[in-house]
């Protein structure tokens, strides 16, 4: 890893760590509130998988949702802030390659996502005793899902010219895709049309595969979810690298 890449990664980590209350603690609290409300209302009424209570079903979904949303938030908000304040010039003047730029932003975003996901997991340990059927699948989907959202965050951060546009991207694309991905329910409980729509949502495969790592059962085969997740990451990272190589909205 080059010094430039390490430095950019360090700078991105330091940036979110310095405001850790906002970037890590706050999303953990939000996830905890979701858990308290939904588990209180639904725990004794819903059993999604055989032998798995609703609270246990919900926790991996909440961990993954928080991880994904925060991975996106990290790369996108860092880039838009740098663009709006103009300090992005400090990263454009040095001899940093577009690949190093991409790698640093994605790694930092994944690390923040993992930090938030770990935080959610730790606080939910008080409420539910989770099985860990396939830990490697858990790690695989956490890292790859975070990378996908980190890439999407780089795209959104570069594309958006103002905070308003980024908020639109977050609220109208990322939020609906994460909420409608089976975080709170199994998609097999949905009517036919919405079931078909859910199958077109790549976020569903990330969360479903992640959940498989805990319970050893899921709506889809983890291999299919893995293939779709790898494909999504490949497509998004190629698109992001292409934007960066062309200097889209960064170098005129």
């Amino acid at each position: 890893m080059s010094v430039a890449l390490r430095t950019l990664l360090y700078k991105e980590l330091l940036r979110f760590w310095k405001v850790g209350f906002q970037t890590v603690a706050a999303p953990v609290l939000t996830a905890l509130l979701y858990l308290l409300v939904f588990s209180h209302v639904l725990d004794r009424r819903v059993e999604v998988y055989g032998g798995v209570g609703y609270t246990a079903f919900l926790v991996p979904g909440l961990i993954m949702m928080s991880l994904l949303q925060n991975a996106f938030a990290n790369s996108s908000s860092s880039l838009i802030q740098s663009k709006v304040t103009g300090n992005i010039v400090f990263m454009l003047l040095p001899p940093i390659s577009y690949r190093e730029f991409f790698a640093a932003y994605v790694m930092a975003a994944v690390i923040r996502g993992l930090a938030v996901g770990t935080g959610v997991w730790l606080v939910t340990l008080w409420f539910v005793d989770l099985p860990y059927a396939h830990p490697l699948w858990i790690l695989f989907f956490a890292v790859l899902g975070g990378s996908i959202l980190a890439s999407l965050g780089v795209i959104a951060g570069i594309w958006a010219d103002k905070f308003d546009q980024l908020a639109g991207f977050q609220n109208f694309i990322v939020m609906p895709l994460t909420f409608l991905s089976g975080v709170f329910y199994s998609i097999h409980s949905l009517p036919g049309f919405w079931l078909a729509v859910s199958h077109m949502n790549p976020f569903f495969y990330m969360i479903d595969g992640f959940r498989y790592g805990f319970f050893g059962q899921s709506d889809m085969s983890p291999w299919i979810s893995a293939l779709i997740t790898i494909g999504s990451f490949a497509a998004l990272s190629l698109a992001t690298l292409n934007m960066l190589a062309r200097g889209y909205k960064l170098r005129n």
Binding site: T7, K11, R15, T85
Partner: peptide
């Protein structure tokens, strides 16, 4: 333009900039 990164101190800013140049 008078641009700066509000997250860092002066020394951090200069160390980071040095790192960008390897």
């Amino acid at each position: 333009e008078l641009v700066f990164d509000p997250f860092f101190t002066v020394r951090e800013t200069l160390r980071i900039q040095s790192g960008y140049f390897g």
